[in-house]
């Protein structure tokens, strides 16, 4: 019995040390990527290419999901609000939920599973097939040439995708409540506009999506670069990217929200 307790405590200790060590490695890697970003910024074509894969190819899922989330919000919001006779506030509800939370968070979650996993798999596979070592042997730094452009493309894409998601959501809510149900168009927009604040809601939502972009892409490139050079290694790393970034997004969202909206309604 005593032995069991000791061994499980030792297990916890081992896990903690392992986790801390990995976090340290990841942080060092992250700094290295930032340090070696010169090439990507000088040769922006490299980033543009990756923008296509992370940004453009994520558009469809972002647009469609945004539209549907907005439509559901509109429908549910209307159902609830009309009981209190304030269905004209449905615009406020849709817009605030999207701009403050759902836009950045859901877009980031989708981004992690669409683009983050692809980044990890690609870098991991390049490592497994010795493409990264080959690049190193050609005196080209793989972090500068392969990792940094993908990182910056992700960081740039994320706020745009979140904004597109929110706009599509507001439009979806408009479709359902104004066009289909018949809520007054004027009050849909005006209520929204009087409740949504540029500084507190739009800017904060934008800042959130920037944080998420950095977090998701940093995790994705690290997992890819750190993946064991085997098929299982790469597939495990891809899964870890999605799981870790989802958890980090949600945790970070809580922290950011607590900071941003403290003392505010």
């Amino acid at each position: 019995m005593f032995k069991r307790i000791v061994s499980s405590i030792r297990h916890i200790g081992h896990q903690t040390i392992e986790g801390a060590w990995r976090l340290g490695v990841a942080t060092r890697f992250f700094l290295l990527v930032l340090l070696k970003s010169g090439t990507s910024l000088r040769r922006f074509g490299l980033v543009v290419r990756e923008l296509y894969f992370t940004g453009v190819l994520s558009l469809i899922i972002i647009v469609v999901s945004g539209l549907f989330v907005g439509m559901v919000l509109g429908l549910q919001g209307y159902e609830t609000l009309q009981k209190y006779g304030s269905e004209s506030a449905v615009g406020t509800l849709v817009a605030l939920s999207l701009v403050r939370e759902l836009g950045p968070v859901v877009a980031a979650l989708l981004f992690a599973s669409r683009a983050g996993s692809a980044i990890t798999a690609e870098i991991g596979l390049m490592k497994a097939t010795e493409q990264l070592s080959a690049m190193g042997m050609m005196a080209v730094d793989p972090i500068a040439r392969v990792v940094a452009p993908r990182f910056w493309a992700g960081v740039i894409s994320m706020p745009f995708l979140a904004a597109i998601f929110s706009v599509m959501g507001v439009f979806g809510g408009y479709l359902v409540t104004v066009v289909f149900i018949g809520v007054d168009e004027g009050s849909y927009w005006s209520q929204m506009q009087s409740a949504v604040d540029f500084r507190f809601d739009i800017v904060n939502g934008f800042i959130k999506s920037c944080f998420f972009g950095v977090a998701v892409t940093a995790i994705a490139v690290f997992e890819g670069y750190d993946a064991p050079p085997t098929a299982e290694g790469v597939s495990g790393a891809t899964t870890r990217t999605v799981v870790t970034s989802s958890l980090v997004i949600l945790g970070l969202d809580f922290i950011l929200t607590a900071f941003m909206f403290r003392g505010v309604s």
Partner: peptide
């Protein structure tokens, strides 16, 4: 130096 890798290692 140039190196031909055992498994090619072409950039896919």
């Amino acid at each position: 130096m140039g190196m031909l890798f055992q498994f090619g290692a072409l950039f896919t």
